[in-house]
């Protein structure tokens, strides 16, 4: 069945449950053959960080992710899309972002999830600030040219 896919988008402080989000996309239907999930976690290399603080632009964050998700729905034959992005203080090891894509076959689901993450990285209005274990001001995380480059391959 081909219907209009309405992406689920949530900007929230609380954690998410990956398994529950997959069930929410697939429950009660038998036409989905592939679900891809990507989770992005707060990473700490060498016990330097106590947390990342994620600032966002309320309103635009939802709007921009909505535009990115709508483009994914236009480009790939998807049957479901979920994007959850957390904000606020997030400790190492905790979840930051979730992308779930569902399709008849795996290629569309993989590609759409990859596209969504590349665009989220370079266009969704979020900024990470480091809180360091030694109490020093870690400062704002610098944007990577490689993330900007990654988004250009989908043009």
């Amino acid at each position: 069945m081909l219907g209009v896919v309405t992406p689920k988008i949530s900007i929230q402080t609380q954690d998410f449950d990956v398994a529950a989000e997959i069930v929410a996309l697939t429950a009660g239907r038998a036409d989905i053959g592939a679900v891809v999930t990507f989770s992005g976690l707060c990473r700490d290399e060498g016990e330097v960080l106590t947390a990342l603080e994620l600032e966002h632009y309320p309103g635009m964050a939802e709007g921009e992710i909505g535009r990115i998700a709508a483009e994914a729905v236009n480009r790939w034959p998807l049957q479901g899309v979920t994007v959850i992005h957390r904000h606020g203080r997030i400790a190492p090891g905790q979840n930051i972002v979730l992308v779930v894509t569902a399709s008849t076959h795996r290629q569309a689901a993989f590609e759409a999830a990859d596209f969504l993450m590349d665009y989220l990285k370079s266009r969704a209005p979020f900024w990470k600030k480091e809180h360091r274990a030694d109490g020093s001001e870690g400062g704002w995380v610098d944007a990577k040219d490689s993330d900007e480059q990654a988004a250009t391959r989908w043009r």
């Binding site: 993450m117 990285k121 370079s122 969704a124 209005p125 979020f126 900024w127 944007a143 993330d147």
Partner: peptide, 10 residues
């Protein structure tokens, strides 16, 4: 109008 640094979400 909003002004901000390059984004670092995801």
């Amino acid at each position: 109008i909003a002004l901000f640094p390059p984004m670092t979400g995801g």
